[in-house]
Design a protein around this nucleic acid. Sequence first.
DNA 1: TGATTGATTACGGATTCCCGTAAGAATCAA
DNA 2: TTGATTCTTACGGGAATCCGTAATCAATCA
Lengths: 221, 221
Amino acid sequence: MFKKVLIAEDHESTNISVRKTLEDLGIANKEFRYYCDDALKLIEIAFGQEDSFDLLITDLSFEEDKNIQKIAGGRELIKAARQLQPGLKVVVFSLENSIPVVDDLFENIGIDAYVRKARYDAVDLKRAIEAVFQNKKYRSADLMQNKRIENSYDFKAFDVEIITLLCNGTPQKNIPAYLQQNNIKPSGLSSVEKRLNSIKTALNISNNEQLIAYCKDKKII
Amino acid sequence: MFKKVLIAEDHESTNISVRKTLEDLGIANKEFRYYCDDALKLIEIAFGQEDSFDLLITDLSFEEDKNIQKIAGGRELIKAARQLQPGLKVVVFSLENSIPVVDDLFENIGIDAYVRKARYDAVDLKRAIEAVFQNKKYRSADLMQNKRIENSYDFKAFDVEIITLLCNGTPQKNIPAYLQQNNIKPSGLSSVEKRLNSIKTALNISNNEQLIAYCKDKKII
DNA sequence: TGATTGATTACGGATTCCCGTAAGAATCAA
DNA sequence: TTGATTCTTACGGGAATCCGTAATCAATCA
């Protein structure tokens, strides 16, 4: 089993139970940090002393507080850690349940496992750690399949941009001016209208208000 | 200290660390359930055997899965439990960080403590339990701030009604018809327009999209 | 080069929304 | 009942939107 594990997790209660899970797996040598910067520092120190960690278990989102952090979240933490120590195994343990976000972590960051905080997350985490120790990849069962249920729509950056503008109170007719100022590719009012229309058609949504509600519910904005 | 405590929390990892917190407080007689229905059933059984719980620690949101539940969330669970056993002490332990939501729990449900899942939530929870045991109310420090600081608006049932209709895709001009069908007091289109306008003016909001975003963020709908 | 295709934009009419004004109910007091 | 106040509704002009059509632009390829 892993010899030395670091937990990066801001919630104390979650932190505690992850430690307990590690104990159940017989891992005695473990550290935990509540902030990303602290976690990275520890990784660097251990690496410098040639006593490096061989597993990092980290959350994705860390709440901001008075302690201003250079590293804002788990994704950046993993990137920084891997830059120093490319062989470091990484298990992400987070509430995030968006498939694209998880896909990104596997494809672009090369994480070894993703465990979603959910009903049976402790046993799930245990399984993940065991799988990673055997050089396997792991992801929680309910994030395996493409959740392409029914009418779905793949929101592009442009879509998010214009919807965000609407949410900030920008009138639709003023959006082109903003887009031009920021050198965003299609900037015509017609393009904005067309895009909004195709989104609404794809999702069977009838007005802008319903669209905003949908995006808020799905955490798209 | 409390003699018998029930934990209603769907996340296994959180559940584990709440149990550990109770152990630290010297509470040996504790039960835990992952579903609201199971939790209520246990409360009923214990009450029937005259061995009732004297503290309930519960989450607010429970994820839906194959196990269809009659009781969907913590708020309903507390209401049902209190109906049976009015003296039951209740500590809510949740991610929710919206002040109005927490205010509602204290004012309309009469919970005894609210602990937000955050960085130092384990010690926070411990403090809350100790406070409640001394018949005090408790809420996490970062949720203390006075309710009506900024420009705020007191949403009435009517406001929520029409905003909800918009979110369901109802065109504004069709809202009067719906209101008449349901015998809701002002039903004229002008009244709807005026009301939306006064809300937006009060909150310094410029269009319906921004209003929906605001209401979603504040959990008004 | 010239042609084709697709994306972007411009335009215009129909609809809806916004908002001020005034007319119409309802409530209450004198 | 009368008058006053408030709430509700009706109306209308101007603005914004929706949406289809057509023109323009960009890129690729024969």
